[in-house]
Amino acid sequence: MSDSGSGWYDETLHKDVAQRLRMGRVLHRDRTGLQDLVIFENPVLGRVMALDGVVQTTEGDEFVYHEMLTHVPILAHGRVRRVLIVGGGDGGMLRRCLEHKAVERVTMVEIDRSVVDLSIAHLPSISAGAFDDPRTDLVIADGCAFVKNKGVKETAERFDVIIVDSTDPHGPGAVLFTEEFYADCKARLTPGGVMVTQNGVPFLQPGELKDSHRRLGRLFGDAGFFVAPVPSYYGGFMAFGWATDDAALRRQSAEAIRPRFEAAGLTTRYYTPDIHVASFALPAFMLDALK
């Protein structure tokens, strides 16, 4: 990880390849108690937040990631009232969920309060006031314990959509990729509910794709992936896990999705109903990895 000392930030998530981002002004850097966090400016990507040496979000391209992980499950479902976000401390996922006026409540469970506070202070355009929305229920707690209904804010509430906006499966984020966690999430879904997950870059992380597919497939009637290119997540397409017991939801046409999109009145920079449908068409190397 780290500032190389020459004005560049070296991300070394992957063993044999890396990316470098030029560091302009450093807005914040310290250990939060749970993670090493840095926020800095880059001439192309704007403000960048990295945790433990891995880029988490940037002002420049966050819209691709956040639009796809929210609008795809919400519009595919069509009747979403309650959403649970596990992680997502920068607030981008929360903001995009709240753009759906029919959504009555979004519960966001983030383990590290300082990530929320620093994002509001230094990356305000990403959350755009979402934490002040009366439909927001921010819970600072361990996401695994929350879905298991143990500890902080015990509740039997169920959700139409669960979004797992996690870090990669290393360190604190590893437990969010286990079959036990996925099973606990399923128990918190309403009938016909949808769970989506951040699932890495399959070209460089094929094992993560295979593991998630196997675990989700044992629990849900329909488990698969959709994809989108997020420039600051080096390595090509990013995969998003998809899991539900209603197999019809991901087989809808753009013509079926379009009226929902128009009724929602969304303004997007990446997502469209046609992109929604096309994102479930996986490249051959991913299909081969899933065999």
Rank of each mutant, 00 (worst) to 15 (best):
F131L: 06
R214K: 14
R81D: 09
M108T: 10
V109R: 11
E255D: 14
V277D: 02
M238E: 11
A278Y: 10
G33A: 02
V277E: 04
E67F: 01
A263M: 10
P172G: 08
E99D: 12
S127T: 03
D16P: 04
E262V: 15
D36A: 13
A256T: 12
P191Q: 14
G224F: 02
L138W: 14
V277H: 05
L51K: 02
E59S: 10
D10L: 15
M49S: 09
D3F: 15
G151D: 02
L282W: 04
A145R: 13
T155Y: 11
D211Q: 09
E99Q: 14
E11L: 12
P283L: 09
N149D: 13
Q35H: 09
T244R: 13
H66R: 05
L34C: 12
L69M: 15
Y182L: 04
T58K: 12
E208T: 14
K101A: 14
S114F: 13
K210A: 12
A247G: 08
A228N: 03
R22D: 03
V17P: 02
A243T: 03
G129K: 05
S4I: 07
E154Q: 15
F177W: 00
K15L: 15
A228Y: 04
H100C: 06
F240S: 00
Q198R: 01
P43V: 07
I39A: 09
F240V: 01
I120W: 11
D10I: 14
Y65K: 08
